Computed example of a mutant assay.
Amino acid sequence: MKSRTKVALERHELEPLVREVLGTKNSVRRVEELTEGMFNAAYALELEDGASVVLKVAPPPELPLLTYERNLMRTEVEFYEHAAREKVCPVPRVLAHDFSRKRIGRDFFLMERLRGTPLTTAKKRLSKADQVRIQTELGELVGRLRTLRGRFFGYLQPDTGLQAGTWREAFLAMVAALLQDAERFAVKLPLPARELLALFQAGATVLEQVTEPVLTHFDLWEGNVFVHTVDGAARIEAFIDGERAFWGDPLAEFASTALFRDPEHETDFLRGYQAATGTPLVFTREVRHRLNLYRAYLYLIMVLEGAPRGYSGLKALLIRQYCRMKLRNELELLASR
């Protein structure tokens, strides 16, 4: 999908950038723009020595963005580094990054190119046994992410201003920032911002159950789970695009792993999750309430993000309408609670 945040680099800009940052004399043999992502410009590069790498380039820093999107690429790299260091889940290996903005005026980083394909594509050719294995493995890896603990709640980058000492305070600040963004970008919401915020605040007591900040990817839909076949069996190769990550409630992960679905029905995923955590997830009234809050928050992001990115066309319109409907449903559920 086209987005004004995906500002392209020319071929003559790519080659010296890659050689300098990687410290190699290899020239770039082939360049392929990767169009699946919706925020950063991305390129698959084949070097003269046969190495395949991916270059991701952030939007210009002066471009108006949602509040949580400030320095978003730095969050993605930090997520990869945390996950790789603690070996809790597979992620692409980061080869180099430059956040000085001295070379091209923007953040960028290079990572290894994965061999597999997104689960959105791969599942069309997976056997039933492979699909069960992938969902069980996904649950296990998400369960293992719970072991990564932080020092504060909220988004990783301090420039967002969305960090706090409690999850309730951080989450409500995250919601309030999105509502301010909606006003800034003139996005119409299902309810006035004041009423919408009141719905989140009314149920925020349930967030006090969360006392430890856990690294949460919050964008683990099937497009960000890469699958690769090894010895005839499909396995998860890596989680990608950790740019929405925050320190918060690990339960929030279920809003994206079961995107537009009911996580209570994801039996294979839940079996893997239980294997990793040691205890079954019981969907109590409080757990469902927290999931309700996180789904509403995610759908709010999805309704808003097209405005600064300048999404257009029929596909963008249909996605926006669908997300507005899902947001409205979650808000009605919050009101009933």
Rank of each mutant, 00 (worst) to 15 (best):
D268C: 11
L119M: 12
E62K: 07
L291G: 00
D268S: 15
A42S: 15
M1D: 05
K128H: 13
I319L: 14
P250A: 02
R101V: 08
L331S: 07
L126G: 08
R320N: 11
H217E: 03
R168D: 02
L22V: 08
R285Q: 14
I134C: 02
P250I: 06
E330R: 11
L334Y: 03
H97I: 02
V53L: 06
R320Y: 03
Q201W: 01
E20K: 12
L327N: 00
L65E: 06
R194H: 12
K87L: 07
L199C: 11
E253G: 03
M302R: 04
T216C: 08
L331F: 11
V287F: 00
L66E: 04
P16I: 11
P16S: 10
E237T: 07
L156Y: 02
K56D: 00
R295S: 00
E20T: 07
E33G: 03
C89Q: 10
V214H: 08
K128L: 15
L110A: 01
A186Y: 06
L63C: 08
E195L: 05
G23E: 12
R235H: 14
E15W: 10
A176D: 15
V57H: 00
P59I: 02
L291F: 10
L178A: 07
E253A: 02
L317K: 14
F239G: 04
R103K: 14
P16W: 11
A173L: 06
P308D: 07
L300Q: 01
S336R: 15
E15R: 11
A258D: 05
E112Q: 14
G248A: 15
F109L: 04
V303M: 03
K56H: 03
A233L: 13
F185L: 13
F226K: 05
I319H: 10
Y155M: 09
R146L: 07
